[in-house]
Design a protein around this nucleic acid. Structure first.
Lengths: 345, 345
DNA sequence: TGGTCGCGTGGGAGCGCTCCCAGATGTGAT
DNA sequence: ATCACATCTGGGAGCGCTCCCACGCGACCA
């Protein structure tokens, strides 16, 4: 019947109540101090802060989440299929950015790998029941309905990359078109006359953008893009290898190739070696991603660098803003890419 | 005054209460079903499960955590300094393993990067207040007190790797000694007579183990290890480069080098090229980690592979077991390593 | 027929917090 | 001195769940 007023919480940690008692104030006041409400006098605030310090009080997340109906956690969702992203600077950069941005917010980062449709459904349900305050989506495919689903359910979402040029879901992307242009301009600037490209799957927007940048740069230089100089890959090394052979067969005179990924550039380099063509002597090569592999290739690969960490930070900032004011300003950011020049071009 | 019995929870989601009402049972019974208690009749269980399905009920994590005094979450802690691990298969493998093992437990994975002492203290406090059920520690340094601190506070911990041979904190490691032995045996088996090694910092147990394996293998082959054939690095490419130059200066006749990391092997390879020595013709090279870089080196690098994903899984299993029964069986696992033979040896 | 046991079950109490309303206190205008 | 108003504060109610006690009810024994 009578309410028990113990000296500590269940696991020996102090609770709000004890802090209040020690500071000689009410629970509400302590809560206000913790949450930074302005409606507390300076005197009281100081007393409460002292009590918190004395007791080493740390708010109980679950209790807070339950009472306030928020979780103080965001999820970073990665389709497991994209495991290769993982190994490369891409993913680690994103994580670093996200983590840095979260560092002084005491919002937690939940990492979710999704590998099966079942896990996918489970996550949707999970998110739907507001067990996270927001979701960060990485490497979303063109036909993936999840972003829209989440958005419709009123869950703040920010994606990395876009599914199409008129992407409606808030996102942070890097300038793939611009990066490709940079690469091709560079190649042309080095006096190359026949610049080919090895692209990614055409159902991926990012791949289409890189082709577009390629074509754009050629046109800007007064040359008409030639379909025969475009070979399709799937971002993998093998596909780069095959594509290179195809290109050389079609247009033996080509003297430069812009590859839409470093991995494909590695494959292409192998093909060139097989064909007895030197890099950069006979053929100049540029990749995309600026991965560790690019740095260590022989010759070191010129590559387009994406601002991974910056994207991670930007995504997080956008998400937090969205969570905060729930304002209808759906952020769409496109961060600049950068060309890292090395020996291959 | 009167208790409000609404049709749904705060955010429109059904609660335990509604499930109970729909199934025509009490709250306790539904809770029992959800938690898999055996003290429920088959009939009742079926009815409750039906109601759960009908309503699309998902338990509220925070409420559960508050009531049950557990969080259903574990933290994976990564010192940010080890960012290089990140880029390599190491980290992604661990994450994949952890995530896989967690997949059907509905325990969540919290990723925490620690980059400053402040963040470190914050995490300790956080963990101390039982806001996570357990902690996974990656790449702990020899002088890091955190594992012991956590363990003393009664928080289940599992580390990846050990700080010393008599590590008391539960851990999962791979067989570094055995891996190094494998590498050196392989080198000797290929007819190499003067096998050197480039090691990591001697304050890292993992580095000491790899030297030990190196020496062990030599002795097993009836050769006395020679201090002059051991050069110290710090796992970085630069240090490998410098160490290789030093080794060749000291013992120009050496014809094989076991490097304690792929990155150092890359540096060593560069040094050998500068010195006009071919690989594997003049000098055979073996690395450690089997990273993407090893596969793409020229010639492709023979390397010792660690079972990353397996370690991630094992760590998670150990941690869950520890959380589960809190038994005093502090698991110490050492998983086998494997030699991946390529062109460099 | 009454008593005992044990399985299934219902529901009160309470986890530690936030929200919000009502009350206390202080300030300036009337 | 009185009233209106703003500022600050205390604490009840309640978030959705688990824990656990008590109760109902057959089965079984004497």
């Amino acid at each position: 019947m009578a309410v028990t007023r113990r000296g500590t919480g269940r696991d020996g940690r102090p609770t709000l109540e004890q802090v209040a008692a020690r500071a000689g104030v009410g629970r509400g006041t302590v809560s206000r101090v913790i949450n930074g409400s302005p409606r507390v006098s300076e005197r009281t605030r100081a007393a409460v802060e002292q009590a918190i310090a004395d007791l080493g009080y740390v708010p109980h997340r679950a209790a807070r989440a339950l009472a306030a109906n928020r979780s103080d956690a965001i999820a970073l969702v990665v389709p497991e299929a994209e495991t290769r992203l993982f190994a490369e600077p891409y993913f680690s950069g994103i994580i670093r950015g996200v983590s840095a941005e979260l560092a002084d917010t005491d919002i937690q980062l939940l990492l979710t790998l999704i590998r099966t449709p079942k896990e996918r459904a489970r996550f949707s349900q999970y998110a739907a029941s507001h067990r996270v305050d927001g979701v960060l989506l990485v490497s979303v495919h063109g036909d993936d309905p999840m972003p829209d689903q989440l958005a419709e359910m009123g869950i703040p979402v920010v994606m990395n990359g876009r599914r199409s040029s008129d992407e409606l879901v808030p996102h942070v992307d890097c300038d793939n078109v611009g990066g490709a242009q940079l690469a091709v301009e560079h190649l042309l600037g080095r006096g190359r006359s026949t610049v080919a490209t090895i692209t990614g799957p055409s159902d991926m927007y990012v791949a289409r953008c890189r082709v577009e940048g390629y074509q754009e740069a050629l046109r800007a230089a007064g040359r008409e893009p030639d379909e025969e100089l475009i070979a399709r890959g799937d971002f993998s090394e093998e596909s780069g290898h095959a594509a290179m052979h195809k290109l050389i067969a079609r247009r033996p005179e080509l003297d430069a190739v812009f590859c839409a990924s470093d991995l494909m550039a590695i494959g292409a380099r192998r093909a060139l070696r097989e064909l007895g063509r030197s890099v950069p002597g006979d053929v100049a090569l540029v990749g995309f991603d600026d991965s560790a592999l690019a740095r260590h290739m022989d010759p070191a690969l010129t590559s387009v660098r994406q601002p991974m960490e910056g994207m991670g930070r930007a995504m997080t900032r956008s998400l937090l803003a969205e969570i905060g004011d729930a304002g209808p300003d759906r952020p769409r950011l496109v961060l600049p890419t950068e060309l890292v020049r090395r020996a291959s071009s």
